[in-house]
């Protein structure tokens, strides 16, 4: 067990280091398509997280019973079951939200983040660990979609979560709620996150050199 990372690490890695959008660049289709507003981003991320957590739990529980040859088919069946549940519940309880997310809820089935986590993590780890990992990835997805959705909503409609934040004379940039705006914003955010990571690494490296020199001097 000593070689395995701690549980908190398992959760945190999905938020930043291994963020599904900014680092793994998985599941970009729903990311780009639904983030016209912050609420859409949150709803999409929560739906995906629900599917991710429960699929990971089930896959991890039955991981030793499934023959390797049909594992992908089995994962897809399990994932599709949970996606259909989400779709039906949303249609029944939140018809407005379900309408604005349109076909992207059923399309969670083919979201690479989910199948990726089953194949890379849940099929090799204990159920508890898999759920923590799924929650971490889901939170990372939520973070990315919320930031993207908020930025697009602020610039594209002048509001955030439906509340007016821009002054009245502000003329919304329609491009931000069009597909082009999604690509531009995601690209700039990725650039920013890469810049931050390189910057952090550089500082860490310098610190190590400084420490080494200090030790050497004494």
């Amino acid at each position: 067990m000593s070689s395995k990372p701690s549980l908190s690490n398992e959760f945190v890695k999905g938020l930043w280091e291994n963020n599904p959008i900014f680092k793994q660049v998985l599941g970009t289709c729903p990311t780009l398509a639904v983030t016209v507003s912050a609420i859409n981003g949150i709803a999409m991320a929560l739906a995906t997280t629900f599917v991710l957590v429960f699929s990971s739990l089930i896959v991890s529980l039955v991981r030793k019973l499934i023959p390797t040859q049909v594992r992908i088919a089995s994962y897809i069946l399990i994932i599709a079951t949970f996606v259909t549940i989400v779709d039906l519940v949303m249609k029944a309880q939140f018809p407005e939200l379900s309408k604005s997310l349109g076909p992207y809820i059923p399309l969670i089935v083919v979201n690479c983040i989910i199948l990726g986590r089953q194949e890379a993590f849940a099929s090799k780890n204990s159920p508890f660990r898999s759920v923590i990992d799924a929650l971490g990835m889901g939170s990372g997805f939520l973070l990315a979609l919320f930031v993207l959705g908020s930025l697009r909503e602020i610039f594209g409609s002048g509001t955030i979560l439906g509340l007016q934040v821009m002054p009245n004379f502000y003329e919304p940039w329609l491009i931000m709620i069009l597909p082009a705006g999604a690509f531009l914003t995601l690209g700039l955010l990725m650039g920013l996150s890469n810049f931050y990571v390189t910057h952090k690494k550089k500082i860490e490296k310098e610190n190590i050199i400084q420490e080494y020199l200090k030790i050497k001097a004494t």
């Binding site: 069946l77 079951t81 259909t84 549940i85 039906l88 249609k91 029944a92």
Partner: peptide, 24 residues
């Protein structure tokens, strides 16, 4: 394996659908 997963999934979904359909 596949049949079992299919049956469980189908049963689960029909329950959810029974609940959701009238609401939809």
């Amino acid at each position: 394996t596949l049949t079992l997963i299919g049956i469980i999934s189908g049963a689960l979904l029909s329950e959810v659908s029974n609940w959701a359909e009238p609401k939809i």
